[in-house]
């Protein structure tokens, strides 16, 4: 029996029952922009960047089961324009200063913005005043860059079994919180080996003391478009889907002299 199919921008996509539109599209080598989706985690449907148009309605591709005969529109001007506005609003809400961000070039938000042609600001930016949590010895938690995708929340809860992160508040007041009495990452059992330590699509959770060791021009999205990178993800094992800070996809490791303890 033939697999059921739907059309994505007039191209037939076959799918397995239970697959979402996004999963089926990715399996077929078609890129639909997304930020809160990760192939190893349950869909969340919160960023709305993967919205597609189905019979005139806008639906999140990550959370909408594929159905036989669906006519799905993704790369059409109205949908792309909406995605661009959504992505810019993520920039509006935080403080995303790419030039001094270690994640620049490896950042999915930045790469998605480029992919969608977000080249100039069209909204007023909030410039919120957010502190940095540097209490953990190995990781920096920079709330300025958090886009509330909840990937770290799901990774910590569903894969690491730790429940380190959570989202609190509603609407514009929604914030990433740390599950400790002090609210500080240093007071949790968050560790280098955690999936949640590698899943952040932006520069909100970063390994400390590794800034700019991979030169500009040799980073993930310097070498490949986000559409190309997205296609490699399904074949990879858990935790290696997205290039983490200590596993840059581009660039050889820098040779390091022996540590000088006597100076």
């Amino acid at each position: 029996m033939n697999a059921p199919v739907f059309t994505l921008d007039r191209v037939e996509i076959s799918f397995a029952p239970g697959q979402s539109i996004l999963q089926a599209a990715r399996a077929a080598g078609r890129y639909i922009p997304h930020l809160c989706f990760h192939p190893e985690l349950k869909a969340h449907g919160s960023c709305r960047v993967c919205m597609v148009r189905v019979a005139g309605r806008l639906l999140p591709a990550c959370a909408t089961p594929a159905q036989p005969g669906m006519v799905v529109e993704s790369e059409v001007p109205e949908v792309q324009q909406m995605r661009r506005a959504l992505v810019e609003m993520l920039f509006v809400e935080g403080n995303h200063f790419c030039p001094s961000c270690e994640k620049s070039g490896d950042c999915q938000l930045q790469a998605t913005a480029y992919h969608l042609g977000m080249l100039a600001p069209q909204f007023d930016y909030f410039y919120p005043d957010r502190a940095v949590d540097a209490s953990h010895p190995e990781f920096l938690l920079d709330f300025n860059r958090c886009i509330l995708c909840s990937l770290c929340v799901r990774a910590s809860r569903d894969v690491d079994g730790k429940n380190v992160f959570g989202l609190s508040g509603r609407g514009l007041r929604t914030r990433l919180t740390v599950n400790a009495a002090s609210g500080r990452l240093g007071d949790t059992d968050f560790a280098v080996g955690d999936f949640a330590a590698r899943v952040c699509p932006v520069g909100a959770i970063l390994k400390k003391r590794q800034g700019f060791q991979v030169p500009l021009g040799e980073r993930t999205y310097d070498r490949h478009s986000i559409a190309e990178i997205d296609q490699h993800a399904p074949a990879q094992s858990l935790g290696e889907c997205a290039p983490g800070p200590e596993v840059p996809m581009g660039g050889a490791p820098i040779s390091r002299a022996p540590r000088r303890e006597d100076t």
Binding site: S255, R259, E261
Partner: peptide, 9 residues
């Protein structure tokens, strides 16, 4: 040639 980074206390 040679290492490019060093560190200490």
């Amino acid at each position: 040639s040679g290492p490019l980074l060093t560190e200490g206390p």
